[in-house]
Design a protein around this nucleic acid. Structure first.
Lengths: 141, 141
DNA sequence: GCCTAATAGTTGTTTTTGTAACTAACAAGG
DNA sequence: CCTTGTTAGTTACAAAAACAACTATTAGGC
C-alpha cells in the first residue's frame, strides 16, 4: 500500500468538507423553497446588495452567466425577484427581490447564521476564525 | 444594504475555496488523461490501497455507488483498471490498477504533492497544518 | 455616420449528475 | 429447501451543469 494520504491533499479535503457543509444547508433551501444552489446564492446577493445586474452577481459570486440567467428566470417565475430594464443602457437589467424574495432571504439568512454559530460551538471560536481567514485567502486567488 | 457577509458563511466560503483549488488540479487530470473528478478519486484510492471493491471506495470516499460504477466503467474502457470477480462471493468484484493506471496514478500523485507543497509555501506551514486539521474534523462528520 | 469589437444576457446542445428501479447473488429464519 | 431480506453493482430516466453559439445593444476608431 502506497503511503500517500488523500486526506492530506487539499483540493480533496476541501471538497469533502464543502460537500458535507453544503448538504446540511441544502436541506433548508431545497425543502422550504424548492431552490437550487445557484438560486439561493443569487437570492443572498440580492438580499445583501438589494440591486444588482446579472453580471454583477456573476463577477462577485464567480458563477457563470448562463447559470445566473437560468437561476434568475426561475426565481422570477416563483415571484422571488423582479427585473427592470435600464433606460440608459438597454442591454442591462436590474434585479431586486420582491417582498416574498426578501422574506425568503431573511429566513434563510437566519438559518445560515444559526448554522454558522452551531459549527463555531462545535469546533471552537479560534479554529472557526482561523478557518475563515485561511479560506478567504484561498477563495480569493 | 444588509450587513450579512456571505464570505463569513462557511458552506459558501468552503465551496468557493474548494472550487478554486479543484480547478487548479482539474487541469492536469483532465488534459493529460481525460479523467473526470470521480475518476481521479477512484484512481487514487486504487493507487493507495491497491485492491478494493466498488463498495469499499464508495464508503471510504463517500461517493455514491452509481458514480463509482460509471467511473470504473470509464477507467476500465481506457485500460486504467481491471476487474476480477470474487469466487467466494460472486456479487463482489475486485478492482486494481493496470500498469497504465499505476503510471497515471504515480504521475498525478506527484502533481498533487507538488500542488500541496506550493500551496503550503503560499499560505505558510502553520496555516496549512491548522487548515487540514480543521477540515478533517468538518469532513469527518 | 459606419464598421468592428465588446458587453449583457439568453438559448440550444451535449455531458454529467441524481434518483429510483432493477438484476444477481448471498444470508438467515423457519 | 424456501421465503424474506440484504448486499453488490448496473441501468434508465430526469434534473442540472458545462460549453458554445446566438441576439440585442452599446462603444470606439476612423
Amino acid at each position: 500500500m502506497s503511503d500517500f494520504d488523500l486526506r492530506g491533499f487539499l483540493p480533496y479535503l476541501l471538497n469533502q468538507a464543502a460537500e458535507a457543509a453544503s448538504l446540511d444547508f441544502q436541506q433548508y433551501y431545497k425543502d422550504r423553497y424548492g431552490m437550487l444552489r445557484t438560486e439561493w446564492r443569487v437570492l443572498f446577493h440580492l438580499g445583501i446588495f438589494e440591486r444588482m445586474t446579472a453580471s454583477d452577481i456573476s463577477a462577485r459570486a464567480r458563477i457563470h452567466k448562463t447559470k445566473i440567467s437560468r437561476a434568475v428566470s426561475r426565481l422570477e417565475a416563483r415571484r422571488f425577484l423582479e427585473r427592470t430594464r435600464d433606460m440608459e443602457d438597454r442591454r442591462v437589467e436590474w434585479l431586486s427581490l420582491t417582498q416574498a424574495g426578501q422574506a425568503a432571504y431573511r429566513d434563510l439568512r437566519g438559518v445560515a447564521a444559526r448554522y454558522d454559530r452551531a459549527l463555531e460551538e462545535e469546533i471552537g471560536a479560534d479554529d472557526m476564525a482561523a478557518l475563515k481567514r485561511i479560506l478567504q485567502v484561498l477563495a480569493a486567488r
